[in-house]
Design a binder for these strands. Structure first.
Lengths: 201, 201
DNA sequence: CATTTGCCTTGACAGTGTCAAGTAACAATG
DNA sequence: CATTGTTACTTGACACTGTCAAGGCAAATG
């Protein structure tokens, strides 16, 4: 179920490296995520991670992949008790923001292409594609993004959700909203209710 | 006119430190922006910057301030040859994205609160406030953000523009848009034309 | 003339990511 | 059984980073 395999035996060290990475990220943000501190946490030497990962970026790519899978989970869950287009879009926007608030460091990492170039990490890239496909499906009804003709409504919805999430995390909306999770999700819902992207017919 | 004072004489070193910082940022992104490389570029010792700035963050804060002033300039210019609410919103969105594309590293820096905590740098914070006030004015007509009752339309417009800019920069819209400046600005305009935030009356 | 101040330099320290080499355990092969 | 190779690490070193500490040196000030 969990997306980061923490198998026993041979994969033990690899698993503890990844869990240590996530813990560090959650505790002290991206700045706290150093290879050597990860190794210390995992109880191995500072070079052990390089046996499983080519470099720092490879570890980060794994965290990004995990992040996209979590995000997809958030989006899918939000659609479970929802009917109709308007409710779906609203739920999706709220779920996107909720994920960003709940996993802020990981969310930031997912959208820092200078740190992780997804095209160089196929599985990470694929996880991102799956999330994107889900968004396309919710907004336009197309099953895959290849079947979608006009991306404008998808871009509009995604941009709004992403901008909202980012501005919350970076503390740029403190005038207008307040900083509790509940207030922020309420504001997100309000935005999506008023400015619902809708595919042109 | 330029917002980074590069005065002569005593302020010479301070000025060259800042211009070196901007150059490095534009050439190699935020990763290339190290204190020591900046000092090397400015032709001074690695500790000289500390005479003018408390720490690395203080230099970055200055770059953020400069960025917000540039952004305000972009927004103001875009309003110059525009009439009516719809055109203003569209122009603002396009200008916001244009700024992000033209000064990508600086734009990223402006929205990395972990790197620069604006509240600890009054002038930087004030510059950000001025940009925000301009957005509020365009969207709601209120002169300052204190006079604004419902921020929802402002948040919606800003989030959309910011999300769009961010997703472009991080290469997440390559399926849908293409990577030239012209294509991206066209897409931005399309989004804003279709999903125009409009204050509720 | 003596002292302070402004402006900058050199030196050092702990931390980083990563290349290079070494080591101990174990499997495969002659 | 002896040898070889592979796996899973460890230890050591290097260049680089931001920043603290101390010093130098010219101009201004008393």
């Amino acid at each position: 179920m969990t997306s980061l395999k923490t198998a026993t035996g041979a994969e033990d060290v690899r698993g503890s490296i990844l869990t240590a990475s996530i813990d560090l990220m959650n505790e002290g943000g991206l700045a706290a995520l150093s290879m050597r501190e990860v190794a210390r946490r995992a109880g191995v030497s500072h070079q052990a991670p390089y046996h499983y990962f080519a470099d720092r970026e490879a570890i980060l790519a794994e965290l990004v992949r995990d992040g996209f899978e979590k995000l997809t989970g958030y989006l899918e869950d939000s659609l479970r008790h929802v009917r109709g287009y308007d409710e779906s879009i609203g739920a999706m926007g709220e779920a996107y923001v909720a994920f960003a608030l709940d996993h802020s460091a990981q969310f930031r990492l997912m959208f820092r292409s200078e740190m992780v170039d997804s095209t160089r990490h196929p599985e990470t890239h694929a996880a991102g594609e799956r999330t994107f496909d889900l968004c396309v499906k919710i907004v336009t009804g197309a099953e895959r993004h290849d079947d979608c003709k006009d991306f404008t409504p998808v871009i509009a919805a995604w941009s709004t959700a992403h901008g909202l999430a980012t501005l919350f995390l970076e503390g740029k909306l403190t005038h207008s909203v307040g900083d509790t999770r509940a207030e922020r999700l309420k504001a997100a819902r309000a935005v999506f209710q008023h400015y619902m992207p809708r595919p042109k017919r």
